[in-house]
C-alpha cells in the first residue's frame, strides 16, 4: 500500500516552497513563517518514509 507520508511530505514541501517564495517576494511575514513551517514539516515527513528492502 502507498505510504501516506509520501503524498503528505510532497504536498507540504511543494506548498512550503511556494508560500515561502511568495512571502519573500512580498517582503502580517506570516507567509514567510507559514511557508517555512510547511517546508520543514514536508521534508521531515519525507525523511521518515521507510525505504523498502530490495
Amino acid at each position: 500500500m502507498l505510504d501516506i507520508r509520501i503524498p503528505i511530505g510532497l504536498l507540504f514541501t511543494v506548498l512550503g516552497v511556494l508560500v515561502t517564495a511568495y512571502g519573500l517576494l512580498t517582503n502580517q511575514n506570516v507567509n514567510l513563517w507559514s511557508g517555512l513551517l510547511m517546508l520543514v514539516f514536508g521534508v521531515v515527513m519525507l525523511l521518515t518514509v521507510k525505504k523498502k528492502k530490495v
Binding site: M1, L2, P7, L10, L11, V14, L15, L18, V19, Y22
Partner: peptide
C-alpha cells in the same frame, strides 16, 4: 493567483491519492 495555486495543488494531490490507490 497564489491562493488559487494553493487550492489547485491541494486538490491535485487529493485526486492523485485516489488514483494511486486504485491499483490496490
Amino acid at each position: 493567483w497564489i491562493d488559487y495555486a494553493i487550492m489547485i495543488i491541494y486538490f491535485m494531490f487529493v485526486l492523485g491519492i485516489g488514483w494511486m490507490l486504485k491499483r490496490y
